[in-house]
């Protein structure tokens, strides 16, 4: 059920602000937090669409978090949504870096800061892998051999082969385009 949200723009701003403040360690972390918030909690976006937006955010130039905020913002409330989501995403790093820039040497060398950050990293790994388990299960249940091959191949290529992410996405897109050809011919005949 869609939870009625009285002020979607405010909710969008607070959600992106909150998510961005906790996004340690790169674009995929913010994607998993956005999935939990906008797909599982608010039901603003469905799951396949979130994966599509991830692929788009990843292929476009620029920071993945900002790109994802633009896409989610657009989806929720058009241009105003973009402005609100992007602002929510860039405010926390801006404020934090502004403060830290005045005493950065002490911050980087502090032992307590390091301990907290190491602990948080363990939590980040758990959140990402929990989301992956949910998404992976759905792919397995769909039982499409082509898609399972793509998933295994993409994982091996990035994790073991260190192949560029853009190359992997473009290859998967090409496989999808080729797979569409026989369907189209069938459609033309019938």
């Amino acid at each position: 059920m869609e939870r009625p949200v009285r002020r979607p723009l405010l909710e969008l701003f607070l959600s992106t602000l909150y998510i961005s403040a906790f996004t340690f360690g790169g674009g995929f972390v913010i994607i998993t937090l956005m999935k939990r918030k906008f797909v599982d909690e608010l039901h603003w976006i469905d799951e396949p669409e979130m994966l599509d937006l991830t692929a788009l955010a990843q292929t476009c130039p620029g920071a993945i978090a900002v790109n994802a905020a633009i896409l989610v913002g657009w989806h929720v409330a058009g241009p105003a949504g973009i402005a609100v989501a992007v602002l929510g995403t860039i405010l926390p790093p801006m404020v934090i870096l502004t403060v830290i820039s005045f005493f950065y040497a002490a911050f980087a060398a502090n032992r307590y800061v390091a301990l907290v950050l190491q602990g948080m990293q363990a939590g980040v790994a758990a959140v990402i892998l929990d989301v992956v388990c949910g998404l992976g299960e759905k792919q397995l249940k769909a039982r499409s051999p082509v898609h399972l091959l793509i998933m295994a191949g993409a994982f091996a290529a990035t994790f073991f082969g260190k192949v560029n992410v853009i190359c992997i996405l473009l290859t998967a897109a090409a496989v999808g385009a080729v797979a569409a050809l026989p369907q189209r011919r069938k459609g033309a005949r019938g």
Binding site: F28, I128, V132, I150, M151, G176
Partner: peptide, 25 residues
Amino acid sequence: ALLQSVLGALRPAVVALIAAAGLGI
């Protein structure tokens, strides 16, 4: 249909990329 098929192929790749990022961390 063409874009549906491309997106359908991209989704499992995205899942794999997120998995690899999580395992890296």
